[in-house]
Design a protein around this nucleic acid. Structure first.
Lengths: 373, 373
DNA sequence: TTGAAAGCGGTACCAG
DNA sequence: CTGGTACCGCTTTCAA
């Protein structure tokens, strides 16, 4: 490592500034200089670049033209300072290994850009100094915070970090519901899976969870278990993978498969399910779905691979993002805004991991379009 | 959509500021106020938070203590303005679908954070207004730019965007080499694959590329073809998947497999290879590796799934990141810094997709540790 | 509509 | 070591 950043002193955060050597670089032209060069006031330049200000079209044009000429761009930092708006949204992230999230984040950051917010990423990792990260959130004066991280952060930290700014939790909630959240309707999804298992004649079912204490996991698990009971099916296992990974799914599936009394398994997300699928098929030589049906949650790309053709509950990613962004905007514009929970409807996608061969037609369901490769 | 952001006027960029409603929020305490409250000068407060400034330990302690008390945090925006350093690195990204990149980016942003740089993400997507994105890079005054995007950006845009600031291209180069780049040694990797194919007795080999005009694709392709020729093997196909995707790999594999004269295929990355693997095995009923050996590039998590156990060339991710960060730091501290190209050695990982059954032992190679599940 | 001037919240140089 | 004081570059009254 080349530079160790500012050490913390006496229980408070030092500014970890100046991580690297000397100061600036070639400095770009400023509004003042441009103004002087053109013989207009600096205010005029500012106005030219601010929509909806009172400036004559002619002057604006002249200035914009000259600006283009001289490669002048308003310094965003300076304008942040005077307007007290950074036009930056902090995105707090942690589980980039689950392919569901990169996709989500990419789209989210694109949408935020569309409404004028750049995304400043904050990678929270277990083990890393979380609080320190959150301090950065505040120092950088982000206007909005989107937390896309099922894990790690306590409600208290979250409240502190987001205090006084727009905030949305995506795919997680906090118990006291003091923060706005947007997520897939996990209850709906888990029930749909249970119903589907029942519909295809399965009666011995199991649940494999991910990170035990996350709200997504708990919601899916509880809803599933409840529905299974309502339908009179037997719950043979309730396992926790411990994390959302292929390996965890694989291990859990071995355990379930070896016990030989389960005919359908709901994995709390697709990665677990895919691990489980491989364990059943390659590891134990079972037939999927004949011997055992497998369902996941999320609808990541891999579920559509012919190898898997995994039945899953699709998270309404676009809707989630749209809602998130509009909630952010609302908070940014309304003084009085009260937090809300926003579960959004997803969609059960039935594929071959639960209904094999031509079974999809047999039970009168349309072949998912994805299967028409 | 709730707010359409500032429309562009007259061939120049308007400031897309004020994407949302009204102005600020509750304002936090400032250094000046803190100073007045404590009866010290505002300069003292500033010094207390700046390591290496001349201030007595006692005063510093007092101030830090009081700051903690009053929840004062230095405003990063203001200090950016006066120091002309943002302590922000822009990360330009595009292909988040390839699981190699989320991982890389997560680690990268973590390392940057360690040396005091937050990461501002810039998602470039084909179709999106690239130039506009790059303008943002400049407006936000990022100190450094890391481009992790094989695609899209022309050398000229890159040079413009990074002008006057530290910049590193990761896993791509530009022809004139005027920008520093760090990447996996694609030539080494492609040659290693060719050598390996030869070593396991394959003589009819094929190449499946990804995005045709990217430097990674070209380097891997050329090196492979060259080495294949040197070794006297026959190149049966040189296909372009058109993109780095499972589907592209699948399609290419069908074409190759149906022709029935190829016994080993090098796919330009793991996702292509996995698509190809499934096509050979499930789509065409071939045996991998007995009928046809499959190798990829990158070493993403999926390659280790027992289902695939894919032979691949591991990109030295940690080394890439370390080098990238240290090059950034160098550029930030040295006035005179000349661009360099930094190919980093990777590692051939031989797994069952090229050497089946107990073959790994037979040819005297150690079982990859990953296989010891 | 336009220009002058007072901040925004720090940094850094200067004198004491 | 400490306090005073010009900036940093833009936004936003306030007058003209």
């Amino acid at each position: 490592m080349v530079v160790t950043s500012g050490h913390t002193v006496a229980g408070d955060d030092m500014d970890d500034a100046n991580p690297v050597g000397p100061p600036p670089k070639r400095k770009p032209i400023t509004a003042r200089e441009l103004a002087r060069l053109m013989g207009v006031s600096q205010s005029a330049v500012s106005r030219a670049f601010t929509p909806g200000t009172s400036i004559s079209p002619q002057l604006r044009q002249r200035i914009l033209r000259a600006a283009a000429e001289l490669d002048y761009h308003p310094n965003a930092i300076a304008s942040m300072l005077s307007t007290r708006r950074s036009n930056i949204a902090g995105i707090v992230v942690s589980e980039m290994q689950n392919p569901f999230y990169p996709t989500l984040i990419e789209k989210l950051s694109r949408e935020l850009q569309r409404v004028g917010l750049q995304s400043l990423m904050f990678n929270i990792t277990r083990g890393s100094n979380i609080e320190e990260q959150l301090v950065a959130l505040r120092k950088y004066n982000v206007d909005a915070v989107v937390v896309v991280s099922a894990t790690v952060l306590s409600g208290a930290s979250l409240r502190w970090a987001t205090e006084g700014r727009a905030a949305v939790l995506v795919n997680r909630t906090i118990p006291d519901q003091t923060l706005t959240s947007v997520s897939c309707d996990n209850v709906e999804g888990a029930r749909a899976i249970a119903d589907h298992f029942h519909a295809i004649g399965r009666r011995q079912v199991a649940y494999v969870g991910g990170l035990p204490h996350t709200s997504t996991n708990l919601e899916r698990q509880n809803a599933f278990i409840t529905r299974v009971a309502e339908l009179g099916m037997t719950l043979t296992h309730t396992l926790s993978g411990g994390e959302y990974s292929y390996e965890a799914g694989y291990r859990a599936a071995l355990e379930i498969g070896q016990a030989k009394r389960t005919d359908a398994v709901f994995f709390a997300n697709d990665i677990l399910a895919i691990g489980g699928f491989d364990a059943f098929k390659d590891g134990l030589g079972l037939l999927v779905p004949e011997d055992i049906a497998v369902a996941g949650f999320d609808d990541v790309d891999m579920t559509r691979w012919p190898r898997y053709s995994l039945t899953t509950f699709r998270q309404p990613v676009d809707a989630i993002i749209e809602r998130t962004v509009s909630l952010i905007i609302e908070q940014l514009s309304n003084e009085d805004f009260s937090p809300s929970q926003n579960p959004l409807s997803g969609e059960l996608l039935i594929r071959h991991s639960t209904v094999g061969g031509r079974g999809l037609e047999k039970i009168g369901l349309p072949l998912p379009p994805q299967e028409q490769r």
